[in-house]
Amino acid sequence: MYRIMICEDDPKLAALLSGHLEKYGYAAVLAQDFARVMETFQESDPHLVLLDVNLPKYDGFYWCRQIRLVSKCPILFISARDGEMDQVMALEYGADDYITKPFHYEVVMAKIRSQLRRVYGEYAPAEQERVIAQGGLVLYPERLELYWQGSRVLLTKREALLVELLLKRYPRVVSRESMLEKLWDESFVDENTLNVNITRVRKKLQELGLESALETIRGTGYRLVLAGESGERL
């Protein structure tokens, strides 16, 4: 399920956008603390961001620049400011589109679908697809998909990076330092960010029926267990 982060300080409009997104099968993440937008972005790891210009503390242009330092995910501005320079600034700072208020929700949904297809779907640049497999667990990194015995889960980019590292080093232990370095190549992370993503990977494996597939090696790191061993929970 694609996650869409909504950074809009009008609670009524944010709720309406969230409702429309969920109606179309997306998961909506609402920014609540507008002084901590990047923390919300890092924690939710969204596939696309809807970003207002007029926000408390810092404006949307500032947050657009901050997001672009760590991510290439699509950013769509939604703003009542309809001046040409506002739109030019948004695009110059890295936004992918600019939608002026008031807008039709169906137009917003269509633009979201278009961006998701362009970046993650049928219009994404074609290249030879990688497949990483061990013990029946199969990862498609470019699709962000993980398969086990015919079942599938959708991963975030960070989750996929961690699963890829675990699969490539299977059945060896992967140190926390190696995981932090892997995630650091994509964006700023800290120990807490790693813990959150490890927990998410464990839950995704459980969704596939692999209840104890991610073993914690105290003081060292983690390893995949695909042969019926029992791992220690984080």
Rank of each mutant, 00 (worst) to 15 (best):
V107H: 12
V107C: 08
V108P: 09
V108G: 02
A110L: 08
A110M: 05
A110N: 12
I112Q: 11
R113A: 15
S114D: 13
S114W: 05
Q115I: 01
L116P: 02
R117W: 03
R117L: 06
R117M: 07
R117F: 02
R118G: 04
R118M: 07
R118T: 01
V119E: 14
V119M: 15
G121P: 09
E122S: 14
E122F: 08
Y123H: 12
Y123P: 06
P125V: 01
A126W: 12
Q128N: 14
E129Q: 15
E129K: 15
E129P: 08
V131N: 05
V131Y: 01
I132M: 10
I132R: 11
G135V: 00
G136K: 03
L137E: 07
L137V: 02
L137Y: 02
L137F: 04
V138R: 15
V138I: 11
Y140N: 12
P141M: 03
E142L: 13
R143W: 04
R143E: 09
L144K: 11
E145I: 04
L146T: 01
L146Y: 05
W148D: 06
W148I: 02
W148M: 04
Q149A: 14
S151G: 10
S151K: 15
S151V: 01
R152S: 10
R152G: 02
V153I: 05
L154S: 15
T156G: 15
K157E: 13
K157P: 03
K157F: 01
E159A: 06
E159S: 05
E159W: 02
A160V: 01
A160N: 06
L162I: 11
V163A: 09
L166V: 00
L166I: 00
L166M: 04
K168E: 11
R169C: 08
R169E: 14
Y170D: 03
Y170T: 00
R172F: 06
R172W: 04
V173W: 01
V173N: 03
V174I: 10
S175W: 09
S175L: 09
S175N: 09
S178M: 12
L180E: 03
E181M: 12
K182Y: 04
K182Q: 14
L183D: 10
W184Q: 15
